[in-house]
Simulated assay, not measured.
Amino acid sequence: MLARLLRTASSLVGFEPLHRSGPGKRRNSSGGRRADAVLDQYVDAMPCAQNAIDVVPGWNLAMPPHVGAAAGDTPLYQDARIPWCLEQFGSIAGRKVLELGPLEGMHTYLLDQQQPAFIHAIEANRLAFLRCLITKELLEIKHAKFMLGNFLPWLEQTDVRYDLIVASGVLYHMSNPVHLLELIGQRSDAVYLWTHCFSEQAMPNGDPRREALSGEVEAIGFRGLNVPLYRRGYHNAWKAKAFCGGMHDRHYWMERDDILRILGLLGFDDIRMAHDQPDHPNGPAFSVFARRSAPGA
Rank of each mutant, 00 (worst) to 15 (best):
C244Q: 11
C85T: 15
S29G: 13
Q113R: 14
P83Y: 00
F243R: 04
A62E: 10
L6A: 03
R27N: 05
V43C: 11
M174W: 03
N28L: 01
C197T: 10
R231E: 13
S11E: 08
N150A: 02
V97P: 01
L260Q: 05
A71V: 12
K96F: 08
L139W: 01
K96V: 03
N125A: 10
L2Q: 09
A71P: 08
S287G: 15
V56T: 00
S175L: 01
I82S: 02
C197W: 10
A49V: 02
F268C: 05
R20I: 08
V227K: 00
K25D: 00
V56L: 08
F151S: 02
P64T: 05
L61G: 05
G221F: 08
R161T: 15
D207A: 05
S175T: 10
M203P: 00
N125P: 03
R34I: 03
L100A: 09
A9P: 01
M147V: 14
A80I: 09
V56F: 04
M273P: 06
A52H: 04
R187A: 13
N125F: 03
M247S: 14
R131A: 07
L229G: 04
E211F: 01
H251C: 13
K145S: 14
V38W: 01
L61N: 10
H275E: 15
Q88F: 12
L133A: 09
L148M: 02
S21Q: 00
A35F: 12
I82G: 00
L130M: 12
P75L: 07
A274R: 09
S21F: 02
A242L: 10
V56E: 03
N51T: 11
Q41G: 13
C85K: 15
W84N: 09
L148A: 00
S175V: 07
V38K: 00
A124L: 11
C85R: 15
D249K: 05
I122V: 12
G245A: 12
G149H: 03
G185Q: 04
E200L: 01
I141Q: 05
G264R: 09
F146N: 02
